[in-house]
């Protein structure tokens, strides 16, 4: 048994559409060990799905190599497929089928006997709260129910490695939280290695042991959320003033820390924000500058992304 679940080297995917070449993934070097929960974080179009599709044998890489669960994704596709679970961006269950039927046929596809597939389907129906809808046609299910059914489909064979592509996109906050709970539980109870993609910062932060930030097909950071925040972004101190005039005078007293000016607020970024604020306030006091509000925020992964790329992931996603 190897401890490396995923190893890629210089993994690259280029698409050519009407003579235009898109470099979806450029030279990705990844390593994921058994039992990790890793999030690929990046804006839309960063290359997250393409990476997952190469790792799950759905797309042949243009160049580079990838080994998943100990097997090459190009030359040993069947071995890879038998060992992984994949929950794609769409719905795994056919819309004209019934949920339970799909679970059973999925179990059969992974080599379970009919009886075992039925038992396993029932277990998953129970643990994912699908009892009320499992015998209905999939197209009549709500988005959240369908997503839970997708998760059940991906887990039918209790894979040692599970890929989830944007598991909670399009769900309302309550369903998202519910789904994240399931993922956490699965990880904790079965030690499943999980690789998920997301463009939700809080999701990556809450779920992942390790966050791999991808932008324009390139890996730009790879660490625990805590380390990323500590290394790439300090605390954010937001100062609000009553007038432009006060603000302008305050700009001269920021202890040499660069301040970003926006409306009536100044934003400073620095490590140890809580200790800095009293010093700042003393300086303003001595200069006779009135501050109407002060806020110190711990850095978020968005701050990390901003520090790394100069762009805000939150705004990218809204665009």
């Amino acid at each position: 048994m190897t401890d490396t679940m995923i190893r890629t080297s210089a993994l690259t995917k280029r698409f050519t559409v009407k003579k235009e070449t898109v470099e979806a993934v450029r030279g990705l070097d990844l390593r994921v060990t058994r039992g990790e929960m890793v999030a690929l974080l990046g804006p839309n179009g960063a290359g997250k799905s393409t990476t997952l599709r190469m790792l799950t044998t759905l797309l042949p890489p243009t160049s580079g190599e990838a080994e998943v669960a100990g097997f090459d994704v190009v030359t040993r596709q069947r071995e890879v497929r038998a060992r992984i679970g994949y929950i794609g961006q769409g719905n795994g269950a056919g819309h004209s089928q019934r949920g339970r039927d799909e679970l059973v046929s999925q179990g059969r596809a992974y080599g379970l006997s009919v009886a075992d597939a039925r038992t396993r389907a029932q277990e998953l129906i129970d643990s994912l709260d699908l009892g009320a809808v499992a015998d209905r046609v999939v197209s009549s299910l709500s988005g959240g129910q369908r997503r839970r059914l997708d998760i059940a489909m991906g887990l039918i064979h209790a894979p040692e490695l599970l890929f989830l592509d944007e598991p909670s996109t399009g769900l309302d906050p309550q369903n998202r939280a519910n789904l994240q709970e399931h993922v956490v539980r699965m990880h904790a109870e079965h030690g499943t290695t999980i690789v998920l993609t997301t463009h939700y910062l809080d999701e990556a932060d809450a779920l992942a042991d390790r966050v791999i930030v991808i932008d324009h097909g390139k890996l730009i950071a790879d660490d625990t959320p805590e380390r990323l925040k500590a290394d790439h972004a300090g605390d954010r101190i937001t100062l609000t003033f009553d007038s432009e005039d006060e603000l302008r005078r305050a700009e001269g007293h920021t202890l040499g820390i660069a301040a970003v000016h926006n409306g009536l607020t100044l934003t400073l970024r620095a490590a140890g924000g809580r200790h800095l604020v009293p010093k700042l306030m003393r300086g303003f006091d001595e200069a006779g500058v009135q501050v109407s509000a002060v806020e110190v925020a711990r850095p978020t992964l968005d701050d990390v992304f901003l520090a790394l790329t100069g762009r805000s992931l939150r705004e990218e996603n809204q665009a």
């Binding site: 799950t56 044998t57 759905l58 069947r78 497929r81 038998a82 992984i84 994949y86 794609g88 961006q89 769409g90 719905n91 795994g92 269950a93 056919g94 819309h95 004209s96 799909e102 999925q106 596809a109 992974y110 080599g111 489909m153």
Partner: peptide
């Protein structure tokens, strides 16, 4: 047309990843 629909919804992709 049925397969086409399954290609759009994602169940075709799911079956391509299975060991079938």
């Amino acid at each position: 047309g049925n397969l086409l629909f399954e290609m759009q919804t994602g169940s075709h992709e799911r079956m391509l990843v299975s060991p079938l």
